[in-house]
């Protein structure tokens, strides 16, 4: 083993330990999510119910209410955090995130249109969300490229695109009031009333996009070195930039299709993981998947138990906790100069 391999090993070991710790957090968050709520269940009761041997009270609670919701939280958290990490790396912009540059809002508008115009086509909702998210990300990318935009201009363009899409969602809901069940939940982000049937198409899309993103992580690393360097290393930069942004759109779109317009996960989790794991693609994306899943699931459990039997939308808890946390992160990092 030469000295380069030797000095890479401690980093790999530290990253491995961090990822194992994050996996433990995901398991813990999952168990808490299945156990806690208006009716508290012991881990033993949860396990029995999952094995189909629970009593009459716990069985439907776990299988019909909490399991779809927990799976939804894990998947949406994974998808949004990984989507944010990809978008930030590809656009070389630490302020970019699916909810900031119009990706979530684009997906939201498509979901609203799909539910209004074809209410029976439930399976197509994630595909429509992907289309809307992709339109959002490509629009912002086109604005950035045509104007040679700075990082700040890119974010401002994203905010403008996001506002236009959000106005579109409001217009659709005004004309078709029944199109989005639990409209406020959708706007803030929430995972109540989720069923496995509604979750399944988005889940497959998320898992496939996640696998593709992890496979393309080395390309993401090379793209982060800048266009000229990436191309001089033999990477067709434009093609891979579009491919990776399409994956980010698929992840964010699929999450929005069942969880609504959740903010902050796609922004703060990649920042947290960069500090914990560095910026090398594979550990970073794996860390974002685990960290996002754990954070969203934990916040959703909090949203359920904080004012039980009343329930908050998970988006409220995320914003209340995530906002101050991100401000703290901004102020700590490089004396407040993140960009």
């Amino acid at each position: 083993m030469n000295s380069l391999q030797t000095c890479s090993s401690p980093t790999l070991r530290t990253n491995g330990r961090t990822l194992l710790l994050l996996l433990a957090c995901v398991v813990l968050a999952g168990i808490l999510s299945l156990s806690l709520g208006p009716v508290s269940l012991s881990p033993g009761e949860v396990l029995s119910a999952l094995a189909g041997r629970g009593d009459e009270a716990s069985l439907p609670i776990v299988l019909h209410f909490r399991l779809p919701r927990t799976c939804g939280c894990l998947l949406a958290g994974m998808a949004l955090a990984v989507s944010g990490a990809i978008i930030q790396s590809v656009l070389a912009n630490p302020l970019a995130a699916p909810n900031i540059i119009g990706v979530n809002a684009g997906a939201g508008l498509s979901v609203a249109l799909c539910c209004a115009l074809a209410p029976a086509a439930v399976a197509w909702v994630p595909v429509a969300a992907f289309g809307g998210a992709l339109a959002g990300v490509l629009l912002v990318l086109a604005i950035a490229r045509s104007t040679g935009a700075s990082r700040l201009t890119l974010v401002l363009a994203g905010v403008a695109v996001s506002s236009v899409f959000s106005a579109g969602i409001d217009a659709v809901v005004t004309f078709f009031p029944d199109s989005l069940n639990g409209y406020s939940d959708f706007r803030i982000g929430g995972l109540s009333n989720l069923t496995m049937a509604r979750l399944a198409p988005a889940a497959w899309l998320i898992l496939a996009a996640l696998l593709a993103a992890l496979t393309l992580a080395p390309e993401l690393d090379v793209l982060a070195l800048g266009e000229d360097t990436a191309r001089s290393l033999g990477l067709p930069a434009t093609r891979y930039r579009l491919l990776l942004l399409a994956l980010a759109a698929a992840l964010a779109g699929a999450a929005v299709s069942f969880a609504g317009l959740l903010g902050f996960v796609g922004l703060i989790v990649p920042h947290m993981m960069r500090r914990l794991l560095g910026e090398e693609g594979r550990p970073l994306l794996a860390g974002c998947a685990l960290g996002g899943a754990a954070l969203l699931t934990f916040c959703d459990t909090l949203a359920r138990i904080l004012f039980s039997p009343y329930e908050l939308s998970v988006g409220i808890v995320l914003s209340l906790g995530g906002g101050p946390f991100f401000l703290w992160l901004l102020l700590r990092q490089r004396g407040g100069r993140l960009v």
């Binding site: 800048g226 360097t229 910026e279």
Partner: peptide, 9 residues
Amino acid sequence: AQSRPVPNI
């Protein structure tokens, strides 16, 4: 290249 970003690796 003239432009040399500094990733955290």
